[in-house]
Design a protein around this nucleic acid. Structure first.
Length: 280
DNA sequence: ATACAGGTCTTAA
DNA sequence: TTAAGACCTGTA
C-alpha cells in the first residue's frame, strides 16, 4: 500500500470526467482502475491517497498514468482573470487530471463514444472486455479482464460486436482492429508523431473523425494541444466564446482546459437538474 | 414518450 | 465544398 499526498487530484472527478471508462467506484471514496494488464484499487481521503500496489508498480506505472509528476496549478494559473466562466470551470474540476492512457484502448473507447451516453459507453467497453479480453487475476485473487487486443478483435466479423451493444460502431471497431493488426496502422509510429501528424494518421481509420481523433490524441498520446469539440463543448463555445476560444493564449494546454469545461458542463448541469428534480 | 447522446459516413446538390 | 440523412440503442 502506497500513501501519497496529492494536490489537484480528485478520484471522484477523474472517474466522472469522461476520459476513462474502466475506472469504477467501488465504495465510499474507493475506486478500481484497469489499464493495460494492470489492475489497481485506490482510496482517497482529502489530500491523502492510498494506492493498493507496491512501490515498483506505483513508480513504474501508476504515477505516470495519473500524471502525478505534473503541477496542474501551472495550467489553471494561466486562466485569464477576466474569464470568470473558465475560472469557475477550472475551480469546479480542480482535481481532474489528463490521464496517460493506452493508445489502442483510447482508439476503441472513443470510436464507441460517438453518439453515445457515458453510462452506455462504459457498458459497451465492459462487454467487449469480458467477451474478448484476456482474463487476469489481481493480488487479492479477484478475476478481471484486460482490454481486448487488436488481434483478438481483428478476426471477428464486422457486426460481431453488436452483441456487445456497440450498434453501428461495431464495424468501426473491427475495421480499426484489422488496420492495426494488419500493420497499415502502426501504433508505435503514431506514438512518435507530433499532434498534427498523429491526428492525420488517426483520421485515416474508418469511423475516426475530427472529434474522436482529438480525444485519442489528448487521452492516448497526451497531446495537450488537442481540443476535442463535441456537442457540450460546442454549446459552451456558443454561450461563452462567441468570438472563439482563445487558443493562442492557452497554446499547449488547451486540452486540459477543454476537460474542465466538459466536466463543468456535464457534472454542473447534472447537479442543476438534480436540484430541479427535487423541488418539482 | 421521445429527443438526443463526448459523431461519422454517405449521398446529393 | 457544403448539407441533409442514416445509423444502433438506451438514457435522461
Amino acid at each position: 500500500m502506497i500513501e501519497r499526498i496529492v494536490d489537484y487530484f480528485n478520484l471522484d472527478q477523474i472517474c466522472q470526467s469522461g476520459q476513462c471508462f474502466r475506472m469504477h467506484a467501488e465504495g465510499e471514496n474507493r475506486y478500481s482502475v484497469i489499464a493495460g494488464k494492470h489492475y489497481l484499487e485506490l482510496e482517497q481521503q482529502g489530500r491523502r491517497c492510498y494506492f493498493d500496489c507496491d512501490e515498483a508498480a506505483f513508480e513504474n506505472f501508476w504515477k505516470d498514468y495519473f500524471d502525478l509528476g505534473t503541477d496542474y496549478g501551472s495550467y489553471t494559473g494561466r486562466v485569464a482573470g477576466t474569464d470568470s466562466y473558465l475560472r469557475d470551470a477550472a475551480a469546479f474540476g480542480a482535481g481532474i487530471r489528463i490521464l496517460r492512457q493506452d493508445l489502442w484502448e483510447m482508439i476503441v473507447s472513443f470510436l464507441i463514444s460517438q453518439q453515445n451516453h457515458i453510462t452506455r459507453i462504459r457498458r459497451c467497453i465492459d462487454n467487449i472486455c469480458t467477451g474478448y479480453g484476456e482474463i487476469l487475476e489481481n493480488g487479492h485473487g479477484k478475476a478481471y479482464h484486460a482490454f481486448p487486443t487488436p488481434q483478438a478483435l481483428a478476426v471477428l466479423p464486422e457486426d460481431a460486436l453488436m452483441a456487445c451493444n456497440l450498434g453501428y460502431r461495431s464495424k468501426y471497431v473491427v475495421r480499426a482492429a484489422r488496420s492495426v493488426a494488419g500493420g497499415e496502422c502502426s501504433l508505435a509510429t503514431i506514438r512518435g508523431l507530433s499532434y498534427p501528424e498523429a491526428k492525420e494518421k488517426l483520421l485515416q481509420l474508418y469511423g475516426v473523425g475530427e472529434k474522436v481523433a482529438d480525444c485519442i490524441c489528448l487521452y492516448g498520446l497526451h497531446h495537450l494541444e488537442a481540443f476535442p469539440v463535441d456537442t457540450h463543448i460546442r454549446q459552451a463555445m456558443e454561450a461563452h466564446y462567441k468570438e472563439g476560444f482563445p487558443m493562442e493564449r492557452y497554446a499547449g494546454c488547451q486540452g486540459v482546459l477543454q476537460q474542465y469545461i466538459f466536466y463543468y458542463e456535464l457534472a454542473g448541469n447534472t447537479l442543476h437538474q438534480g436540484k430541479r428534480a427535487k423541488t418539482s
